[in-house]
Simulated assay, not measured.
Amino acid sequence: MAEKKISGGVKALLELGPVALFFIGYIKLKDQVFTFGGTEYDGFIVVTAAFIPLLLLSTGILWALTGKLSKMQIMTVVLVVVFGGLSVWLNDERFFKMKPTMIYALFAGILGFGLLRGESYLKSVMGEMLPMQQEGWMILTKRLVLFFVTLAVLNEIMWRGFSTEAWVNFKTFGLTAALFLFFMTQSRVFSKYGIEPPKEEP
């Protein structure tokens, strides 16, 4: 399927909407307990069970509209289904809380493996959106590996040492803000190594 363009607003809604709804659902149901088939499930598990098909639906719509999904998006969906499904199946919220750790550790591992081969796998994902010299991609990839490792460690600290509510806030706002701030602070790399697209002839 050929890649198609959609507006940034629609793309952001499909990518961030499920996370926002997860947060809202948790806030509303966090103190409630539900019984299904004779087993009690707290609000976190119920919201997690709803989040999985919601993410699959939004990702499917994004693929239908654009004709393309990045490898990172696909891996994220797979890990959400696996770890979220384990949390629901075993009625144990710890598996879903581990999911960001696994995601960031996997991303760091893949990008780090590319660096060992002298390549930037990040370029293959973002190269079309952000034309940049190879040296710039290598610098950005090294920094992103360290950043992902840091996020993985922080997630472990948060879910093991703090309350579920604190972890949900960290996951919803802290991780999102951290990613935004990281790329904002890389502006010097983008400006120094960025490649200007060729101007079209009038």
Rank of each mutant, 00 (worst) to 15 (best):
F95L: 03
P131I: 08
I103T: 09
M129C: 01
M1A: 14
S124Y: 14
L116T: 14
V149I: 14
F113A: 07
F190T: 06
P202G: 10
E196C: 02
K123V: 05
L144I: 06
G43W: 07
I27L: 14
T101N: 04
L90S: 09
L140G: 12
L146F: 07
V10C: 05
L62V: 05
M102C: 09
E135Y: 03
F162Q: 08
S187H: 06
P100A: 11
L116E: 07
M126C: 04
E156I: 11
M72G: 00
T185P: 02
V168I: 15
I24L: 15
F83Y: 03
F83I: 00
V46N: 03
G161I: 00
G136I: 07
K28P: 01
V77G: 05
Y193P: 02
I157L: 09
D92W: 03
M126I: 06
T59S: 12
Y26Q: 07
P198F: 10
Y121G: 01
L144D: 07
P198K: 14
V149N: 01
L175E: 05
F95W: 15
L29F: 15
G109A: 14
K123L: 07
V168S: 05
E201D: 10
L151F: 00
S124C: 04
A152H: 00
T39N: 12
L86T: 01
L13C: 07
K171F: 13
L13G: 08
I45F: 12
Y104Q: 00
T48L: 11
F51L: 11
L140A: 15
G85Q: 02
T101A: 08
G9K: 12
V82R: 03
A108P: 07
E15C: 10
W167C: 09
D31W: 10
S7I: 08
S187Q: 11
W63G: 01
L79G: 03
L144N: 10
K30T: 11
G112R: 06
I6S: 09
S124T: 13
M129G: 06
F148A: 12
N155K: 01
M98Q: 04
T172P: 04
P131W: 08
G109H: 03
F34P: 05
V88R: 10
L57V: 14
V10W: 08
E128K: 14
V88K: 08
G109P: 02
T39G: 00
L115C: 12
K171N: 11
F95Y: 14
G85S: 01
I61G: 06
A178K: 01
R117I: 03
G114I: 06
A105W: 04
I74S: 09
F44R: 05
A50D: 04
L111H: 05
F23M: 13
F148L: 10
T185G: 05
E40I: 00
K99I: 02
S120D: 13
K4R: 15
M75D: 03
R117V: 02
E93Y: 03
T76V: 08
L54N: 01
Q73P: 00
T101C: 08
R117Y: 06
K4W: 09
V153T: 05
T185C: 08
K123H: 12
G9P: 01
Y121Q: 00
I6K: 11
V81A: 11
P100Y: 10
L144Y: 12
A177N: 02
V46D: 04
N155D: 04
E119Y: 14
I110M: 12
T172L: 06
I45Y: 10
V19L: 15
F183K: 07
L179H: 13
G109E: 01
A105D: 01
M129L: 14
G43M: 09
F180M: 13
P131Y: 08
